[in-house]
Design a protein around this nucleic acid. Structure first.
Lengths: 156, 156
DNA sequence: GTTATTGCAAAATCTTTGCAGGGTG
DNA sequence: CACCCTGCAAAGATTTTGCAATAAC
């Protein structure tokens, strides 16, 4: 388990969440959180399960799902469903400000940042009375590569 | 099959899409599109299938999935995955400008409008080279009802 | 010691697929 | 009349559940 300031923080957040809810602080739960915060980018349950199996600490797939549920509740991870049938996740501590462009042709996912999204979030919170915790914004369309391919096809 | 200007338009769009792709214009495909455009709000495959079975024209679930795929391709419907495991859909002809607030506690979905989203879409298209066709924006948080319930719990 | 949590496998749910028959172009 | 599309049922994939064993408190 490599040390990092980020991991230290999320471990503390998770600990206090578990304590507040009177949930047990098990080895499995912390191993899963540690593994997730070692992953760059998105992951799905299957790949997380495989990583845990080979690298550090074997847990059952049921426990992976259980822990992911807890991590979603305390906002340490984000759940995405980019249009496939498998859910994908990503850590969300101090990186909850980017959004995604998804190519409807090849499926490539690209990240982008736009501070205006946060502003819309605040406006919407105020006007609807919702207490918005986080957002998810997807732009669907053709990536530059697929776009030029389609143009070629039309030319033929 | 009730007449409406909207239905007339989407039927024509779908017809020309099928012709352009050299796909066949079957009764089933038009019955499904007609049913979808009779639905207010969101629906899932199961409920659409049930509606078709009882109301107009029985089709197999495989055909429902197949047709939904086509309607997604020509942007006549939108696919949502609000966090559950079942996908939900909605018609998107001339109503592709609203977004969704989702309560993480009770699951209620509320719509909202904000024209700034369209602006972000254009900025992002320009800067990334993506040809963005549509977007999906979800705000997750507590709805007013659940918010006040949680506050009560804390007070105790 | 109690009781929540884990692991395993089986079940449940949603979606896709293969194939024979039927309908569209 | 060729062959794409449909319907059916079975298979696939992902997620959930039930229950005995285990470990946290």
């Amino acid at each position: 388990m490599k040390y990092s300031k980020e991991k230290d923080s999320v471990m503390r957040i998770f600990t206090s969440y578990l304590e507040r809810k009177n949930y047990r602080k098990t080895r499995e739960r912390f191993a899963i959180l540690d593994e997730i915060y070692s992953i760059k980018g998105h992951f799905d349950v299957e790949s997380l399960y495989e990583m845990l199996k080979t690298k550090k600490y074997t847990v059952s797939i049921a426990t992976v799902y259980n822990t992911i549920e807890l991590l979603l509740e305390c906002n340490l991870i984000k759940k995405h469903q980019f249009g496939e049938n498998t859910s994908r996740y990503e850590k969300s501590f101090e990186c909850n400000n980017h959004d995604h462009l998804i190519c409807t042709n090849c499926g490539v996912v690209v990240e982008f940042w736009n501070p205006v999204v946060k502003e819309i979030q605040e406006t919407t919170s105020a006007s609807t009375g919702f207490d918005v915790v986080y957002h998810v914004l997807y732009f669907y369309g053709l990536c530059p590569k697929c776009k030029s391919k389609k143009t070629d096809e039309t030319k033929r």
